[in-house]
Simulated assay, not measured.
Amino acid sequence: MDDLTGGGAPDSTGAPLLDVFMQGTTFFDMVLTGLPSQPVPGTEIHAEGMGSCPGGIANLAIAASRLGLRTGLASTFGDDVYGDFLWRTLEQEGVDLTRSQRVADWHSPVTVSLAVHRDRAMVTHAHSSPVPLAGLVSDTPITRIGFVSLDEEPEPWVSRAKAKGAKLFGDVGWDPSGRWAPEELTGLGDLHAFLPNSTEAMAYTRTEDPRAALMSLAELVPVVVVTCGGQGSIGIDSLTSEEEWVPSLPVNAVDATGAGDVFDAAFILGTLREWPLRNRMAFGNLCAALSVQQVGGSLAAPGWGDLADWLAGVRHAAAAGSRSAAVLANSYGFVADELPSHPAVSLRRAVATIARMSDA
C-alpha cells in the first residue's frame, strides 16, 4: 500500500511534495437544506437545516485531504471574516496553502446553495480577485496528480507538472451561457482522466445518453468516468481495456453539494493505489453517498473513520441476515484492506454559524 498519509519532504521552494495539487476559486458556501420548494417571488419559506463551509475548489481539496492525500491548493482569500474562516478551516483540514494568498480590500466569493428534493440550486456573488490565479504558481509543484478545470484557461504549471511526470485529472463546470462549446474540451488530450457528470458529458459531446457521451470522450482521453447521480457511474479505462457500470448506493440524501468533488477525490486515491477501474468507481460512489447524508459539501466529505464505521455496519447487517447488506459487504470488501491502521480522528461538520472563539 502506498504511504499517502505523510507530509512529504519539501521541494526546493520549501513546499511539501504532494499527491494532488489544484488551483481555483474558494467560495464561502452557505447551504440551506430541507426546503419544501424553490423560493417563489413574493413569498417566504423556511429551511429545516443550514451549514457553512468552504466551497468551490475547497470541496475537492478537503475531500482529498480527509482520505490521507497530501493536498496542495493555490487560491486567493479575502481579508474579511469569511476569508479568516476559509483559511483557518483549510489549514485545520491539512491542506497545504503554501501557494495561496490573502488579498486585502477584496471580499471572499459567497455561494448560497438551496437543497430541494435531492437536488440543489445555487446563487453566487463574487468579484474577480485582484491577484490572478496565474500569479500564485510561479514554480512547478512537485505532485503525483494535478487537477485542472477545462472550462478555465490552462495555467503554465499544468504543462510543466505533466512534463515532470504528474498525471492530469480534469473536469468541467456548469456553462451558464448554455452554449456548451466543444472547443472548450481541447485540453482533453493532455489529461490522464476526465470526470464529468452526465449532463456536462452529453452537452459537450452533443449526445443524448450518458454511454454515448462516454464512448465519444473515450476517443480523446485514456480514462473517462461519467457520474450519473442516482444511477451510479459508468467508465472506460482504455489503458487497461476495462469498461464498468457501478450502481449508486441507496441513501437518504440531505445535500448533494460537492458530491462530484468527493467522487473525484476518491477516484484519485484509487488511481494512486492502482486499483481496478471497478474498485476506483465503487469507492467514488461510496464516498459520495456518505457525503450527501451530511450538510455542506467540503465538510460532509468522509474520512477513513466514516468508511470503517459504514463497512462495520454493513457487515453487521449482513451477519443478521440482510441480503442487500451481504451484497454490499461483498462488493466493498476491498475497502477493508485499505483502512489505515492508525486511529481515525473526528471530523468537523458544517454548522449554521461562523464560529469565532469556539474555533480555537
Rank of each mutant, 00 (worst) to 15 (best):
S159H: 12
L67S: 03
E338T: 13
D359I: 02
P141M: 06
A15N: 12
L191Y: 07
S322V: 08
L311Q: 13
Q293I: 00
S341F: 06
A282E: 11
T13P: 04
R179Y: 12
Q231H: 15
L290P: 00
G51D: 03
S346P: 04
T13H: 11
G305R: 01
S52E: 15
E152W: 09
V221H: 09
V221S: 11
I62A: 03
I236W: 11
F21R: 06
R356F: 12
G94L: 04
G94S: 04
A319C: 03
A282T: 11
E183A: 14
L60T: 09
D309F: 04
P109Q: 05
L188R: 09
V223N: 10
T111L: 05
Y332C: 07
G229M: 01
L136D: 01
A58C: 01
W275N: 05
T207L: 06
A308T: 08
V226C: 09
T43L: 09
E152G: 09
L60N: 07
R356S: 15
K162G: 14
T25K: 04
D80E: 08
F85C: 00
V81Q: 13
V224A: 10
P41R: 14
G333W: 06
V110Y: 15
G135I: 02
D105T: 10
V103S: 02
A218T: 08
F147S: 12
P343I: 07
H117P: 03
E184W: 09
E184V: 10
A166M: 06
A256M: 10
A115S: 13
A47P: 10
F85G: 00
L195R: 07
G72W: 02
S108P: 03
G14F: 07
P10C: 10
A74G: 03
L217P: 07
T227C: 03
A212N: 12
G56N: 04
W304G: 05
G170T: 09
E155S: 12
D29A: 05
A325R: 05
R102N: 01
D2C: 15
D29H: 05
S358V: 12
D359C: 04
R88Q: 14
M122K: 07
P54W: 00
V254E: 05
A61K: 00
P39A: 14
P54E: 02
V158E: 13
P141W: 05
L269E: 13
P41W: 11
W304F: 14
A326N: 05
T5I: 14
W174L: 12
D255V: 02
A265H: 02
D190E: 14
P41S: 10
R348Y: 00
A161H: 15
G55Y: 01
A300T: 04
G42H: 13
P302E: 03
S159E: 12
G135S: 11
S322D: 13
T271A: 11
G51L: 08
G165T: 12
R348F: 00
